[in-house]
Simulated scan of single mutants.
Amino acid sequence: MFTCAYVTFDDPDQHDDERELALAAWREAGITGRAERWDDPEVRWESYDAVVVRSVWDYLARREEFLAWARRVEATTRLLNPAQVLERNTDKTYLRELGVPVVPTHWSSRDLPAWDEYVVKPAVSAGARDTVRTTDPGRARAHAAWLEETGRTPMVQPYLDMVEAEGETSLLHFNRRFSHAVRRTPMLSPGVAGADQVRAQPRIPAPDQVELAEKVLAAIPEALLYARIDLVRLPDGTPVVIEVELTEPYLFLRYDPGAAAGLARALRELL
């Protein structure tokens, strides 16, 4: 019997509704799981066969502390996903190194491209935090400059109308094996206030989306318990990566009847 930590954080206003589903599937797979706060100084991480990073949704304000914790844990037991993956993935400048088609991105407040509409956000962010959508290049430039003034790297991207019609497609993989996919409502659509209002529905990904996701996975050498690859289409229909979620993604386990068991099976394989 293996014992694994399901790593979360302590916030009564944000509920991880996948935790009990995942832990139940772990038990069915012969894995005893316990929920632990990543910043709890009393936890003996070395007592676990593996430490699985899940709903660590407060790391944004404490990224360096979180990464230092990950490196300490990895020195004593198996960390999934690995610390090196977490370090790269928590700064979206990784998009420059993927070697696959990504959403066009300008990384400065200077010399902005002439786009009809802009999305400007920091490279270290989640849930549309400190993100603006605007048709005004002056506002886009000012927001990018503000991010630079606060020591952050800005990401300036065109807003893609295709997301209104098709949405964002998230492909979920466990131990590099495709599990399921969902279509997500874009967070910056009218009437959608943030991540807590994003809705999803199951979908079958198109062959070109599957091919792109496989290229993304092939570019990452480390072991991956889970990976969520978020794709959108350009106006010409070409699929591109908008984000690769390898740190604390919502896995949409309730959207596929075999998803939780698939996650547990992948964990067992890696153990």
Rank of each mutant, 00 (worst) to 15 (best):
W57K: 09
A24P: 00
T247L: 13
L263V: 06
E46A: 15
A264V: 04
P239D: 08
G127T: 14
W57V: 08
E28Q: 14
G262A: 10
R141E: 12
W57C: 04
K215W: 07
M162G: 15
R19E: 13
L95M: 15
P190A: 14
R139H: 13
L67E: 04
P137R: 12
D196E: 14
T238S: 11
F252P: 00
P41W: 10
P207D: 12
D13R: 14
M187I: 15
L271Y: 10
V51M: 01
D256G: 05
T150L: 06
N175S: 12
V119G: 00
E97F: 10
V119H: 02
A206F: 03
A165K: 13
D230F: 03
A181M: 05
E243T: 11
V85E: 01
G167P: 02
R37S: 13
V43P: 01
S55P: 01
R176H: 07
L95W: 10
E87M: 04
V103R: 05
G237L: 10
V7R: 00
T8Y: 02
E243R: 08
F174S: 00
A200Q: 12
A261D: 15
P154H: 11
E222I: 04
Q14S: 11
R152L: 13
G138D: 12
A24Q: 13
L212P: 00
V120Q: 01
A35L: 04
G127N: 14
E168I: 06
R63C: 02
R37A: 13
Q197W: 11
V100P: 03
L171F: 08
L217V: 09
E211D: 13
G30F: 08
T3G: 00
L172T: 07
P190R: 14
L253Y: 08
